[in-house]
Design a protein around this nucleic acid. Structure first.
Length: 437
DNA sequence: AGCTGGGACCTAGCAGTAAT
DNA sequence: ATTACTGCTAGGTCCCAGCT
């Protein structure tokens, strides 16, 4: 926040990029365009704050135009797409929204391949979702779009700010390992992430899919077969416990620790094809219907609260939005599928040894995000409605003090992943049985 | 060289409380 | 009841170090 404020106080010239104004007199080269941009930025950074008593204010109402633009940039990774290049979204979105279509010369038309059109449309959709936050910001952006140099600079600033917001979220969540479960042994905050992931018995269970989690905890048959204890839900392993494992379980565990491949070598254990077991509510996983209990983990809810209400409300929830928060900053009080996707990516990343990136070994976070978003596409599906309501109640509780348009778009992902395929198949079965019955 | 994470620091804003 | 002040929390920025 210091940068815009400093910019505002440092400059007294004013050339706001408002529509309908004549262009400013040509300043001397060589940095005419830069000064033009700087003065515009400085003017946008100016803000008239009330000097009297601090009354309760809506952050969106008191922000300068530049602050609102940057808030929009921060909104992008959190609620639009954490892995999409915001610069390309601005490029394609701005072009689609504000560029006049150029008529192709007869016999000289250029046909854009369908795949490229689809990709561009993805960026355009993301851009539209982003600027839906504020029509005022859209108007300001349009003024920047009119000048190529200013547009380039504002794109750079959007990239920088969006990345900073994601960085802040990652840093804030990095040491919140109490969100998934009380970790035993506890991991000191000062340590790096190298002792997480499959290297930590409890986090290993959390980060691997349920199918593998069940497999590596399978016990060898004993004379006590049939005891309730032998069929209890698998949790963190000890050396004693490992001694009781079946040979197959030992092989699977060894393979996991050595190369993250299951013993049959067919299915990678740690790919984005299957959701981590920590995404499920306790004791709900059903291999026949992976949708049951999916995303209903308190762990994910806590991350959602951490990101959107405040870190202090993460564990126990908030009955009201009392302090400043991302929800207020962005004017976002409705949980969307993109927000859940972002939550899932952070949830998986904070358990992993790897830092934030698109890929963590064989695990692709972008695919994970796309999978989550894809699962929530059917707006009228009972599972979608129930799950979204669960998050809405869990994150915002009773503090739904603003309405935000339900942003709806189609970021399709052609990859049909394991869990998604099964879930969709079960949905189809339910729908067909409902229609026949 | 560029990117990313860590952490210190700055600032905004809320809530509580005292003063008028 | 209104205003002014203060403490605390949380978001954002900046800078440095380590890594690729």
């Amino acid at each position: 926040m210091s940068t815009p404020a400093a910019g505002a106080s440092a400059s007294t010239s004013s050339t706001p990029p408002t529509s309908g104004q004549a262009p400013p007199p040509p300043p001397p080269p060589p940095s005419a365009a830069k000064r033009n941009y700087d003065s515009a930025i400085a003017t946008l950074g100016e803000i008239r704050r009330p000097k009297s008593k601090r009354a309760k204010r809506n952050p969106l109402e008191t922000k300068s135009s530049l602050e609102k633009l940057m808030s929009m940039a921060r909104y992008f990774p959190r609620a639009v797409h954490p892995f999409m290049d915001i610069g390309l979204a601005l490029e394609y979105g701005g072009k689609a929204r504000w560029s006049a279509p150029t008529p192709a010369a007869p016999g000289n038309s250029v046909v854009i391949p369908a795949s490229q059109q689809k990709e561009e449309q993805t960026y355009i959709d993301a851009f539209e979702r982003m600027i839906a936050v504020s029509s005022e910001c859209a108007d300001v952006l349009r003024e920047f779009y009119k000048d190529e140099d200013q547009w380039t600079r504002i794109i750079s600033k959007f990239r920088e700010t969006a990345n900073s917001a994601r960085h802040n979220d990652t840093t804030g969540l990095k040491h919140k390992l109490k969100y998934p479960t009380p970790i035993v042994p506890a991991i000191p905050e000062a340590t790096s992430k190298s002792d997480r992931g499959v290297n930590h018995a409890m986090l290993r269970d959390a980060i691997i899919p349920w199918s593998l989690r069940l497999k590596i905890h399978e016990r060898a048959p004993t004379s006590h077969d049939g005891d309730a204890s032998s069929s209890s839900s698998p949790t963190a392993g000890t050396s004693e416990e490992e001694a009781l494992l079946s040979d197959e379980a030992k092989r699977a565990l060894s393979a996991l620790l050595n190369g993250c491949k299951e013993t049959d070598g067919v299915t990678p254990a740690l790919t984005s094809g299957r959701f981590p077991s920590c995404f499920y509510a306790d004791g709900t996983y059903d291999s026949n219907d992976p949708a049951i209990g999916l995303f209903r983990a308190p762990f994910l809810l806590r991350i959602g609260r951490h990101l959107w209400t405040t870190p202090s409300s993460a564990m126990d929830g908030a009955t009201s939005l009392k302090t400043i928060s991302n929800a207020r900053a962005h004017g976002q009080f409705i949980v969307t599928r993109e927000m859940i996707g972002y939550i899932c990516c952070h949830g998986r990343n904070m358990l992993s040894t790897a830092d934030w990136a698109v890929k963590d070994g064989a695990y692709n976070y972008q695919k994970l995000f796309n999978k989550v978003v894809k699962l929530f596409k059917k707006d009228n599906d009972p599972w979608v409605v129930d799950t979204l309501k669960w998050y809405q109640d869990g994150i915002f509780g009773q503090c739904r003090n603003a309405s935000t348009e339900d942003r709806d778009s189609d970021n399709d992902d052609d990859d049909e992943d394991d869990d998604v395929a099964i879930i969709n198949a079960r949905r189809a079965e339910r729908e067909s049985s409902a229609s026949s019955g």
